[in-house]
Design a protein around this nucleic acid. Structure first.
Lengths: 232, 232
DNA sequence: GTATTGTTTTTTGCATTCATTACGCAATAT
DNA sequence: ATATTGCGTAATGAATGCAAAAAACAATAC
C-alpha cells in the first residue's frame, strides 16, 4: 500500500488543482438556499429519503451534507430520530446578535487600519447605490447593498478567522434579518448611521466606526426581537 | 469540551429522549482527540480505508465525521483527492489568535455583569489550584487549570453563541498552545496577569478584565508565533 | 372512553458494492 | 537524460442493501 504524493496539494506554491464541486458540497449549498429562502422552515423535520428523492440524489451524500449543516447549526440532528431545520430560541437569537455586534465592531476597527483606498472607493460606490435604493424605497435592493457593505468592510479587515466566523453567524441570522420589517423612521435612522459609518471609515477612525457598527447591530437585534414571536 | 449532540429536542418542554451517541459522533470525538494529541499530525494525509480499519468502522460514518471536522476546519478536504489534517499558516494562526483575544475580552466583560458569587468562588478555587501547580512547576496541571478558568469565565458570560465560537476556535488552537514552551519569566508574568484578572473579576470591573484578557491572549499569540517555524 | 401493550410500518444508521477519478510507474519518443 | 503517454492500481464518491430503532397504529384491558 503506497502513500500518494502529498506534495501536489499544499506546497508553498498554491496548487493549480481544479476542484469540481463534490455532490455533497453542492447539496450543502442547495440546502442552505432552501433554508434561507424559507422553503424549509425552522422546526421542520427533514426526511432523508424524501428529500433525497426531491434533490434526485442518494441518501449518502445528503447525509454528509446534513452533518455539515449541523456543524454550522443550520440544522439540528437528534440521533436515531431525525434532522430538523434549526429553530433558534429567543435567547439564542439575542446571544447571536450580541456576538455579531462585537464582530462587527472588531471588523470596523481593523478595517480602518487596513483598508486600501481602492476598497474605500468601492464601498463608497455601493453606499451611494444603497442610498439610491433607499430613495426609491427599494427594500430588496437596499438590503443587498447593505449586506454588501458590511461584507466589504469585513473583507477589508483582513482577518480570515473573523471573516469565517462572521459569515457563519450571518448565515444563521440571515432569514431573521429579512423578516424584521422596519418602520420608515427606523429605516431613516439606519441610513443616517450608515452615513456616519462611511465618514468614520474614510477618516480611518476605528474607534468611532467600531462603536457605530456595534450599536447598529444591537439596534438590528432589538428590531428583530421585537418582531419575534415565541412560537412554542 | 464536547463536540456533538444537541442534547434535547427543541420543543419548549425539554424532551426526555436519551440520545445514545451515534457512531459518527463518536468518531468526530475520537478524531478530534487524535488530532489534538498529535497522533494525527498537521498536513498528514488521512486515508479513509486505512483509518476506518484502524477505528474498526466502515468508511460511511468516518466520512460523515470527516465532513463535520472539515466544517470546523480541523481537517481540510480536497474533492476527489483526499482529507488532511489542517495545517494552519502563520497568518491563519495570527488571525485566529487576534479574534480569540477579542472573544476573550467580550467574555470578560459579560462575565463581570453576569457571574454569580458561586461561580466566582469556583473560579477562585481553580485559580488557587493553578497557583499551587505553578509553585510546584507542574506545567500540565497549570495548563489544565488555566484552561478551566478561561472556560468558566466564558460560561459565566452566558452567551451561548460566544461560547460555541470560543470553543471552536480553541479546538483549532489548542495543539499550538501546548507547543509554545514558555520561559520562566513569561510564566511568572502570566501568573501575575491572572492575579489581576481575578481581582478585576471579583470587583466586577468588566473594562479592566476585558483589557487584561485581550492582552493576555495577544501575548500568547506572540509566544506561539515566536516558536513557530514555517515548515514549507 | 382511556390507557396500555403488542404489532406493523417507516426511518434512520451503517456496511457493502459499484463507479469515477487520480496517482504511480513503466515504456516510449525526443 | 528528460518529457510524455498509456496502463494498472489505489484512492475517493455515490448508490444500494440490510439491520436496528422509533413512530404509528391496532387491539386489548380496565
Amino acid at each position: 500500500m503506497q502513500i500518494p504524493n502529498e506534495a501536489t496539494l499544499e506546497t508553498s506554491g498554491r496548487s493549480l488543482r481544479i476542484e469540481r464541486a463534490a455532490l455533497h458540497d453542492q447539496i450543502v449549498q442547495r440546502l442552505h438556499d432552501l433554508i434561507t429562502e424559507g422553503e424549509l422552515k425552522p422546526g421542520e423535520r427533514i426526511n432523508e429519503r424524501e428529500l433525497a428523492g426531491r434533490l434526485d440524489v442518494s441518501r449518502t451524500p445528503l447525509r454528509e451534507a446534513l452533518r455539515v449543516l449541523a456543524a454550522e447549526k443550520l440544522v439540528t440532528i437528534s440521533p436515531n430520530y431525525g434532522a430538523f431545520v434549526t429553530r433558534m430560541t429567543r435567547r439564542e437569537i439575542q446571544d447571536a446578535f450580541e456576538l455579531m455586534s462585537k464582530l462587527e465592531r472588531f471588523s470596523g476597527e481593523l478595517a480602518c487600519e487596513r483598508i486600501t483606498s481602492e476598497e474605500l472607493e468601492t464601498i463608497r460606490g455601493v453606499h451611494e447605490a444603497m442610498m439610491a435604493h433607499w430613495q426609491q424605497q427599494n427594500l430588496p435592493g437596499y438590503y443587498h447593498a447593505n449586506q454588501q457593505i458590511h461584507d466589504l468592510i469585513n473583507q477589508a479587515a483582513r482577518n480570515d478567522a473573523l471573516r469565517q466566523t462572521y459569515l457563519s453567524l450571518n448565515r444563521r441570522l440571515h432569514p431573521l434579518r429579512l423578516s424584521s420589517n422596519r418602520s420608515d423612521t427606523k429605516w431613516r435612522r439606519a441610513v443616517a448611521e450608515h452615513e456616519q459609518m462611511l465618514t468614520a471609515l474614510e477618516s480611518r477612525d476605528g474607534d468611532t466606526l467600531g462603536q457605530l457598527m456595534e450599536r447598529h447591530l444591537l439596534e438590528k437585534r432589538d428590531a428583530v426581537l421585537a418582531d419575534w414571536r415565541d412560537e412554542a
